[in-house]
């Protein structure tokens, strides 16, 4: 296989950076919408984007610092948190973004 393609897929830095930058843009845009329009949809979207961003950053960074030593130190509760929290954050974040999008769209329609 093409080596550059392989590097792109296996390291994934460029694409992960795209995703993180996009989520950050969504968060900023949502805050801007919430401040400018006082629409609750923007606030909801910002919360969702932040949750998605935290979970995404954790998923990207965790292979670099999670090892047996760290797992031993944080104990069983910490381990279950590292397993349970990212999917919950991803789910809630996606729901928040979509819900906020709906709220903002409805708010726009009501005020037009």
């Amino acid at each position: 296989m093409n080596s550059s393609l392989e590097t792109l897929i296996q390291n994934g830095l460029l694409l992960d950076a795209f995703g993180v930058v996009g989520l950050g843009l969504i968060g900023l845009a949502a805050v801007r919408l919430a401040r400018r329009n006082q629409s609750w949809g923007g606030t909801m979207m910002a919360c969702g984007a932040i949750a998605l961003l935290i979970a995404r950053l954790y998923v990207i960074l965790s292979p670099h610092f999670i090892n047996d030593d760290v797992l031993h130190r944080i104990g069983p509760v910490g381990i279950s948190v590292t397993y349970g929290l990212p999917p919950i954050l991803l789910t809630l974040g996606l729901a928040g973004v979509v819900w906020g999008l709906w709220g903002h769209e409805r708010w726009l329609k009501e005020n037009r």
Binding site: I9, D16, F18, V21, G22, L23, L25, L28, A29
Partner: peptide
Amino acid sequence: AMGWHAIKLVVMNAGWLVFGIGLAMHAKL
């Protein structure tokens, strides 16, 4: 498996980026 993985990476990450840029332009960010 690798091809689908590549498609997933591109679709999810570029999707958030492009959607984020679109939303930022909508919000006049």
